[in-house]
Write a protein that binds this DNA or RNA. Structure first.
Lengths: 239, 239
DNA sequence: ATGGGGCGTAAAGATTCCGTAAAGGATGTC
DNA sequence: GACATCCTTTACGGAATCTTTACGCCCCAT
């Protein structure tokens, strides 16, 4: 069996700007952060690039020489929902509102601090990565037998407090953040052990076992933690 | 202005700010836009509110009286990934980077224009909406008897959960991605087993059989999975 | 009519994956 | 320095899955 599943998947970013200096500056800065950077000097070239290659983020300057940046954004949004961070020298509120309502994810006014821009890039990529939006996350779970309060780090089972180790708690936290949804093993390993241990599935099984034991999960009856063989685990609240 | 055609569910927004004037101002402005607005005067109250009620967006002032706003953000991100727009009087780049890296989705410096803030609110809600409905729209099927939710990896047939193996699920996923269209055998084999097994059609037949059996597909009556002899298979959505 | 190719079902072997237990190593506390 | 707790690794039994093999069916062309 070939292992094509565990790619580091460095994010691909397209910079659309007609000033070579800005492009070069962003190219350097973004590459240093470990991104795969592409460039386009015009709006037309940018659109063509978006259509040709899959991207994770677009940084778009509104002040393009060949056409209006807002038109580029409008065209792009007709078929793509890739995150777009707009750059502009214009600080007028109407410009910002227009760009944001056309589908921009963020609007940064030039001149900008590179650290802020990089932080906003990270933010957008993180949002994108959280495709399973945990808006239905439970801070508090209680079914009469088991009571979990993540915000206070307290867990009770039939009135008795359950002590979890840091790693056990971290795993439970990730599972509850995606309550009802599946969390893949690499995802779990990445969030708890870091990006370098996405293949050490051995201890994850041990830990899930201990967690089930402490939560009083009976394999024959209902599971708090369900196993999806070959994929991952899922916290199931009300079956 | 975009027409909100499909979603009657009005978005729920929580404003966390210790200044009553700001809260009142935002309350008015947001309600005018049709949002359901909640208020919290302190970080603690804000966190409690988040834990109790589901929200679509949080507007968080960093300058709280009872505690540091960044700590509120940090606590919140332990278990929730609800979109957060941070407000702050501080314009220092390090502050922005810190808040964004703690999980903020956007950072607006006070004083701000209300139109810009509202546009950023719309942007965040749009992103959120795209991810829940847009990316998963194709992955949901329900005809009253069979219910398939690919993103959650859950399948129900007449209320009972159906368990699929990884390969079975992968095949179904490819078929549903091209719902209504034909998927050729080599294409199916390539996507599920990899490019080297485009001729091993033996097991594909076995697997389609098991899949039909589990989905309750009666060969005499309507087919969920149709066979196109000599070509491939097709998932028929509405027969 | 007849033989071949593609299709569907069933069952058996091989392999992988999961869960549990237990031992060794790392870390922090008293 | 002893002890406790936690993390990691190793080992193994059992279950589930994947793959192969075998066989019967239908359709179509010879």
């Amino acid at each position: 069996m070939t292992d094509k599943d565990t790619a580091p998947a460095l994010a691909r970013i397209l910079v659309v700007d007609d000033e070579p200096q800005i492009r070069h500056f962003l190219q350097i800065s973004l590459k240093t952060e470990g991104y795969e950077v592409h460039e386009a000097p015009t709006g037309e070239a940018g659109l063509a690039h978006c259509a040709r290659k899959p991207l994770d983020l677009v940084i778009l300057d509104l002040g393009l020489s060949d056409c209006d940046g807002t038109e580029v954004l409008r065209s792009l949004r007709e078929w793509s929902s890739v995150p777009v961070i707009v750059l502009s020298v214009r600080d007028r509120e109407q410009e910002k509102v227009k760009a944001l309502d056309l589908g921009a994810n963020d609007y940064v006014t030039k001149p900008f601090g590179i650290e802020e821009l990089l932080a906003r890039v990270r933010s957008q990529l993180r949002i994108q990565d959280n495709q399973t939006t945990g808006s239905n996350a439970w801070a508090i779970f209680d079914d009469g037998v088991l009571s979990i309060d993540l915000s206070n780090r307290r867990i009770y089972r039939q009135g008795d407090q359950v002590r979890l180790t840091p790693k056990e708690f971290a795993v439970l936290q990730v599972l509850m953040k995606e309550a009802g949804r599946i969390v893949t093993q690499p995802q779990l390993l990445k969030e708890v052990w870091g990006p370098t241990h996405t293949q050490d599935t051995h201890y994850l099984r041990v830990l899930i076992g201990k967690l089930r034991q402490k939560l009083g999960d009976d394999p024959t009856e209902q599971h708090y933690i369900e196993t999806e063989p070959g994929v991952g685990y899922r916290f199931s609240g009300n079956p």
